[in-house]
Design a protein around this nucleic acid. Structure first.
Length: 852
RNA sequence: GCCCUCGUGGCGGAAUGGUAGACGCUGGAGACUUAAAAUCUCCUGACUGCAAGGUCAUGCGGGUUCGAGUCCCGCCGGGGGCACCA
């Protein structure tokens, strides 16, 4: 049933059809069946207190159009939405107000849901998930246990931002110009025990499998650069005074070994203390102290000029026994390679700069005409035994000979670092880990087949702590209530203050637990334990949500094999380019782990990826609260309706482009929808009398309809919504000039419009007497026979310049077209009296006459 | 510094190597109206010409081609990513 309004009252029409869809579960996706499946996914939002931003509906409208189009094409479409609801803002709000982050999060979700529903997206709300729901994060924790068991999770001391004034750990984004964002207090780097995931073990596969996905090239390249594979060699340099074993360095240029004139250790390198000679100790200690105070960022930003200090020690070059001084400098970082390098100033820009500053010798070993440093290719010189060899050959040969002598080997290094996976926060998934003593761990190990091959441990104040996982049957581990969301004050999360939750008697077989203040229960399976107080980062929940949508209420598995087999992975994934590296890399990592576990059958989670561009404010600047140029969907829905908003978002420009918002231009698409309304509905609200079930419409209109069907379909497939809308506008303009239109043509046109402006399309569909929903009607087909023109327009060029155009019969050959062109009054004068040099003829398109 | 992208009317943008500026906005003229709004029609890159037309024009400079916004080389500018990774 349509509404009763006589003019285009979008504020009645839109809620009416939204209610219809909801009442009829129009968009529910049933798992299984004979229809082919199509899974189209948005990056689910963080439900912030600010509500929906105009950038959200841009990507969401795009996927909604695809979802509705695919349904009409006969696909069983899965189009879900959920909430990435753990995170810092809710926690900060809780600290400020004392309300539980869950309450705040729930309120934000209600608001987001209201806004998203008002946009009329065809989500299957029966599959809504939230990462903060224990029924969801049970499986986030379960995945962590699998990582743990496979030795892919470990603990390590890692530096974090620490603010002594606030007595808390800060995230990178909470530190602005070396001060805390809140209060502007100084911050420092401090080592804390952290959970780390061994993503580096998957570096090679994460790199190699990029070849298999349909992603923007720029995104693939960013991931490649982030993984940063480089081939080279590890080389051992013996010490002149062997106070320790040899120094191991990594180099990509073993061919330049003869040009090594000094070595550099990172300030944090463990051998610095061992090999520094007594006279140099004070200088080295002072240098290490100044660099330790700097963050990685400061080290790169402030160290415009190279700095360093000599250790007093010498190493011996394994290829020629040369004596090379060992320096300490912060241009070498501990986290990459071995934290030690051989310096070849002649062929490395950084080494050259350092050598110049400290007057160290420079020896050229690669020949070439250009001045030093020469980092390009060439043949070797000054390298006895290798002179004259091309560098690539020398690389292989020297590496092989070092390996034969046990002084080195070919290796591959990655820039990718292991993933710091813990936060000292309340509002995140708790780790299902209990720390126990060594003896208790070994007793538990006998009863637990699910422990890693080597235990995860750390030492504090001389005591070893062993990580014992909760049994899977004890999941989920939920967050306890806390009296304060403020951190503990010593770098631990607020969970460290909840003693009854934290300090427990733990049954290692069943996962049962009791506060440690109570007496130890009977039985030999109860051990004293302390829970992990870190929580997981926001990435955790978003790493696998696309799998949960397949089977959102399953409490036996994170997703059933049947659902996985039927739905597979998303066929299209749309989201911002800001997630090009981290989210997409982390999710790929987890997916590969799940593949190795046999949980998922594919090696990659996202086969086709697309990034929507950013919408700027009307001033051309990035939208932000402080600039006051933020556009909210709510006000636009009220003033113009959501169909207009959706259409306009898509009409702004190419989906992937960055484009400014404009209030003036929205009137254009609004007029277009009004025009469509008028073509269907007369002033009194009845069907426009020009629509006829029997009378013939102009042939040109029929032809244009078929062209439009083809164009809109092609453009939706290619996510070119702006040109699809343009094609529909052209049709509407022609329609408006036609005295009669067949009812069938009008219905077909409404179907084309339906994915873009679904509410208006439903309304007009119903008014023309069709049964709702238009979403269930089969997508119109274009008839290629209708697209054939009677005549072709040929552009006549002379020497490549347009000189006229002629109409010729379809299929006309060159001779025929040339003859016509020579008679044509506008083009003929340009060739008169000239001799033809060449004729280029493109059938149906162009005739180019080249004259002297 | 390195890597990647994008530069087209007054504006957003369109153009498988084949009529540059589709579609929309803005602006102008007209129709309808007592009037206005809405709607409809025509015009709207620059220069030149009475006109037909001509010339120039896709950031700048070269090149390939019968023909270049599109391909190649070198610059300039905007945006993004990485950043002492040996």
């Amino acid at each position: 049933m349509p509404t009763a309004c006589t003019d285009y009252a979008f504020n009645q029409i839109e809620p009416h059809w939204q209610k219809f869809w909801e009442d009829h579960h129009t968009f529910r996706a049933e798992t299984g069946g004979a229809r082919p499946k199509y899974y189209v996914l948005d990056m689910f939002p963080y439900p912030s207190g600010a509500g929906l931003h105009i950038g959200h509906p841009e990507g969401y409208t795009a996927t909604d159009i695809v979802a509705r189009y695919k349904r009409a094409q006969g696909f069983n479409v899965l189009h879900p939405i959920g909430w990435d609801a753990f995170g810092l803002p809710a926690e900060q709000h809780a600290v400020k107000t004392g309300t539980h982050p869950a309450a705040n999060t729930a309120a934000n979700i209600v608001n987001f849901k209201r806004q998203i529903k008002a946009l009329g997206f065809s989500y299957d709300w029966d599959r809504e998930v939230s990462t903060t729901d224990p029924a969801y994060f049970k499986w986030t924790q379960w995945i962590f246990l699998q990582l743990f068991r496979r030795g892919l999770a470990y603990v390590d001391e890692r530096p974090v931002w620490w603010c002594p004034e606030l007595r808390t750990v800060l995230a990178n984004e909470e530190v602005v110009d070396g001060k805390s964002e809140v209060g502007g207090f100084p911050v420092e780097r401090r080592n804390l025990r952290q959970w780390v995931l061994r993503i580096t073990a998957y570096a090679e596969r994460l790199l190699a499998d990029l070849k298999e996905v349909n992603w923007p090239d720029s995104t693939k390249r960013m991931q490649e650069a982030w993984i940063g594979r480089s081939e080279g060699a590890e080389v051992l340099f013996g010490l002149e005074t062997p106070v320790s074993g040899p120094l191991k360095i990594f180099t990509t240029r073993p061919d330049t070994l003869f040009g090594c004139t000094y070595m550099v250790l990172a300030p944090e390198h463990p051998l610095v203390d061992v090999l520094t000679t007594p006279p140099q100790r004070d200088a080295v200690a002072a240098y290490r102290k100044t660099t330790a105070g700097k963050s990685d960022l400061e080290r790169t930003e402030l160290a415009k000029e190279k700095s360093g200090v000599f250790t007093g020690a010498y190493a011996l070059n394994p290829v020629n026994g040369g004596r090379v001084p060992i320096w300490v400098a912060d241009y070498v970082v501990m986290g990459y390679g071995t934290g030690a390098i051989m310096a070849v100033p002649a062929h490395d820009g950084r080494d050259f700069e350092f050598a110049t500053r400290f007057a160290l010798p420079v020896v050229r070993v690669i020949d070439g005409p250009d001045p030093l440093p020469h980092t390009g290719d060439g043949r070797l010189i000054n390298s006895p035994g290798y002179d004259g060899l091309p560098w690539a050959e020398a690389k292989a040969k020297i590496t092989a000979e070092l390996a034969a002598r046990g002084a080195g080997r070919a290796t591959v290094n990655y820039k990718l670092r292991d993933w710091l996976f813990s936060r000292q926060r309340y509002w995140g998934e708790p780790f299902p880990i209990v720390w126990v003593g060594e003896a208790d761990y070994h007793r538990a190990a006998a009863a637990r087949p699910d422990l890693p091959a080597s235990p995860v441990t750390y030492r504090q104040d001389g005591v070893a702590h062993f990580a014992l996982p909760l049994p899977e049957s004890a999941l989920p581990l939920t967050l306890p209530e806390v009296s304060s969301y403020l951190p503990s004050g010593d770098g631990e999360s607020p969970l460290a203050n909840v003693t009854p939750w934290l300090e427990i008697w733990f049954n290692f077989a069943t996962g049962e637990h009791l506060p440690a203040s109570q007496p130890r229960p009977a039985g030999d399976r109860w051990v004293r334990g302390r829970r992990e107080t870190n929580t997981m980062p926001q990435w955790a929940g978003s790493c696998w949500y696309y799998l949960r949508f397949l089977d959102p209420t399953n409490d036996q598995a994170l997703v059933s094999p049947e659902a996985l087999r039927y739905w597979g992975v998303p066929d299209l994934y749309v989201g911002g380019a800001e997630h090009a590296v981290l989210h997409l890399l982390y999710a790929r990592f987890w997916h590969k782990v799940l593949f190795d576990l046999g949980v998922v059958p594919q090696t990659e989670p996202f086969t086709r990826l697309f990034h929507q561009g950013i919408i700027l404010g009307e001033d051309g600047e990035k939208m932000s609260k402080s600039r006051g140029n933020v556009v909210s969907p709510d006000t636009l829905i009220a003033s113009h309706g959501t169909d207009t908003l959706r259409l306009y978002l898509m009409f702004l420009g190419p989906l992937e482009a960055m484009k400014p918002w404009s209030m003036q231009q929205i009137e254009g698409v609004h007029r277009f929808l009004h025009k469509v309304w008028r073509e269907c509905v007369a002033a009194d609200g009845t069907v426009n009398p020009k629509i006829s079930p029997t009378a013939a419409e102009p042939a040109a209109l029929t032809k244009l309809l078929h062209e439009t069907i083809r164009k809109v379909g092609d453009d939706i497939e290619g996510l070119r919504f702006n040109t699809a809308i343009s094609a529909m506008m052209i049709f509407a303009n022609t329609l408006q000039k036609a005295p009669v239109v067949s009812r069938a043509s009008m219905l077909a046109f409404l179907q084309l419009l339906a994915p873009f402006a679904p509410h208006l399309a439903e309304e007009l569909w119903a008014r023309l007497g069709e049964a709702p929903s238009i979403q269930r009607a089969a997508w119109p087909r274009f008839d290629p026979a209708r697209l054939v023109a009677a005549e072709d327009k040929i552009v006549v060029q002379v020497n490549g310049r347009r000189r006229g155009e002629i109409m010729v019969p379809v299929g006309a050959g060159q001779e025929e077209v040339l003859a016509l062109a020579l008679q044509n009054e506008s083009s003929a004068p340009h060739v008169a009296g000239k001799s033809f040099k060449r004729i280029i003829f493109v059938p149906g398109k162009i005739l180019n006459i080249v004259v002297e």
